[in-house]
Write a protein that binds this DNA or RNA. Structure first.
Lengths: 166, 166
DNA sequence: AAATTATGTCAATAAGGCTGACATAATTTC
DNA sequence: GAAATTATGTCAGCCTTATTGACATAATTT
């Protein structure tokens, strides 16, 4: 019955696995999402609403199909969340100019304000983390995180406005 | 009704928020967790099982209370997941030597093997990401991720074995 | 006119969280 | 030794976010 015996030694770096970064990512992401989660609670929203609101603000006018592509969830999962955001006046739908079947999604001022309020504590946390860092660390972190994404999905990231838009 | 009007300009860096790193973290973490998720599916397990199995392997002998502390979930949430892992022979409980009320949690060989199998694709992804990086980037990334964690929770991270154990 | 497409909606299911209440056994305190 | 506290387990019920499958509607394309 040696297979049912307890193993008393911990998994360590010996095992050829980079547990340091694996665990750092876990803890960092947990606290990173805790900031907006607390705000969302007050509105009766969850993390799903945050993601929708975020991308509608970053890519105003995107269609439902495009949003599903970015979020990688199903239409039915999106439906409830999107409906709430529309009913509560955070997002509006506008019929597509060329194809009137499409619904272009735009934030309202209320939706813009909330998106910004949710991003602010996250941005503050990032800025604080970079204050203790060496110059160049910011670029290194961004390069690393980008390289962690599946190559075929990096194109999606490039569609997001990165420069200072006029 | 200007508040219900669609806003057509995107949120950008102008708004004083570091969207680049916010979004990079989102996409990176999504793909980072997709690797083990696919494996867990085959076992009928979810992400919750992964987290339990991971920390039991990294801190063998920890008690239920300590595990709850690390995971920051409730006893009832842990119960279901832990029970499955024990019933299926991935984890065993051993009565605490000093306090026999406590249940020390240890992985079995089967549990050790699965924990390692789940960590491997994540480690491979990290290694691949760092291959394109400059020397020193790895340390910069680790510093950054650590600084992203709430200060009072960093002590928890220090309890994890980091060196090469003898 | 027929087929396809974009979207919306209904019903059912599942995972993984939560709270509250209660049970048991072991330890600590008085 | 009795009482209080602690560590754990378990039951019942609820919520959110996701899933799949099926079907409806309107608009566009063929």
């Amino acid at each position: 019955m040696t297979d049912a015996d307890p193993i008393k030694t911990p998994l360590t770096l010996d095992d050829g696995v980079d547990f340091a970064i694996i665990e750092h990512l876990f803890f960092a992401y947990r606290d990173f999402t805790a900031d907006p989660d607390a705000i969302l609670d007050e509105y009766g929203f969850g993390r799903a609403h945050h993601r929708v609101l975020h991308f509608v603000n970053r890519l105003p006018g995107l269609t439902v199909a495009e949003l599903l592509e970015v979020l990688r969830i199903t239409k039915q999962s999106l439906a409830r969340v999107l409906k709430q955001l529309i009913d509560d006046g955070y997002i509006v739908q506008v019929p597509g100019p060329r194809d009137r079947r499409q619904r272009e999604l735009y934030p309202t001022q209320k939706g813009r304000d909330l998106a910004l309020a949710l991003a602010l504590p996250q941005s503050r946390r990032i800025r604080a983390a970079l204050e203790e860092a060496e110059p160049g660390d910011s670029a290194a972190v961004e390069r690393f995180l980008r390289a962690m994404v599946n190559p075929e999905l990096r194109a999606q990231m490039d569609k997001l406005p990165n420069g200072r838009s006029k």
